[in-house]
Design a binder for these strands. Structure first.
Lengths: 196, 196
DNA sequence: CTCGTTATTTACCGTAACGGACAAAAGTCG
DNA sequence: CGACTTTTGTCCGTTACGGTAAATAACGAG
């Protein structure tokens, strides 16, 4: 179970409610791990049953009471044990890539549309990473272990989005080149630094 | 259901048995989509029930008979329809990244070991991509639509593995730099507050 | 002759993950 | 007042994943 451990990892920073966790999974950690609120609440129950987290009810006026979850010592230990096991490299599972694999059996027009949407999507995310990087790490250096991890993560995310965005652009270009003629010879192999 | 569509995509190239598909999902398409044989056989049954593929039994002597699956016209149509829908950007879900997110709550030694294993893994994969690229596309150019897709995919794969390998190296270096400085709290036993 | 391997397909079962719908109570906007 | 949003959850059904195992048959190692 990895989602549970991702939640434990989030709770190492500070105690949070399910709602806050859902928000977190929609921003910081959510950059590389998606989970909606139902998943999170469910996982939270399991974690509580297992004694890895502990819920403290906070009475609120005007709003429903909230449950603030804190890591228990058992939870910390479980997280450390989980983190000490070798990680399993995840596969991408991007259906866009599957489509490219069957390029000659699908319609190119919708593909092109999709590619453009994806290009925008990845550019947005890239911009977002860069924005956070500038805000949180203006010097590009981290001070503590926690910061180091987050800095590294943000940089990886930024690079990844950049790379995928470039890929979308190149694919779009190759597609255009091909619709002009039957055989293609596009794309250079070096770094492309042209502005978008 | 995306696995089913990935299978349809594979079958556009040539008819295959479940066994061959399992091998395919362990090499070419498997570079970005993992699936074991159980998943594939299960999916194959569903696809057959739906009329998207058709199985032809080939009697073999000495081996169990095999079922060669071919795309039906309905399957082709289904694939095209699926490919015409906007793709959903997948999230990474790599537990190594989750660990980095909780860097200051985990033990660094196993992390380092893991990072080294991952570095090797991604380097291997990168070398593999490059090898295939050189073999299949020595000029770096593609001739047909199908080839274009595969060339693009291979290049993306190569770049991705390169990037992740670099990331592992950098993380390892940053970790070393940090333990050298030793400005951070060591997570080793003795420091743990754990209950007695 | 048995044991392990390769080739092939399939079943059973439990866990993990996904995602739509619903509930409930207080806030704000028009 | 009512509609809509925020906050905090629950319920339920489906899909996906993955371990273990089994049937069948040739081929080679010990």
């Amino acid at each position: 179970m990895a989602l549970g451990d991702a939640i434990l990892a989030c709770l190492t920073e500070r105690p949070m409610t399910g709602y806050e966790l859902a928000k977190t999974f929609d921003s910081s950690i959510g950059f590389f791990w998606k989970a909606d609120h139902q998943q999170i609440y469910r996982e939270l129950s399991k974690l509580r049953d297992r004694g890895h987290i502990q819920g403290r009810e906070v009475v609120q006026s005007g709003k429903p009471n909230k449950l603030v979850y804190t890591l228990t010592p058992e939870g910390r230990t479980a997280l450390r044990h989980w983190a000490a096991r070798p990680s399993t490299p995840a596969s991408t599972k991007d259906d866009l890539l599957v489509r490219l694999h069957a390029l000659d059996s699908i319609d190119i027009e919708p593909l092109r549309t999709d590619l453009m949407a994806r290009l925008e999507h990845h550019r947005d995310r890239h911009a977002n990473y860069e924005r956070i990087l500038k805000k949180r790490f203006p010097d590009g250096t981290a001070e503590g272990r926690l910061d180091l991890g987050n800095l590294l993560l943000l940089r990886l995310g930024a690079r990844h989005e950049q790379m995928v965005a470039d890929f979308c652009e190149e694919t779009l270009a190759a597609l255009s080149a091909m619709s002009g003629k039957a055989s293609v010879v596009p794309l250079e192999e070096g770094k492309r630094e042209g502005k978008g």
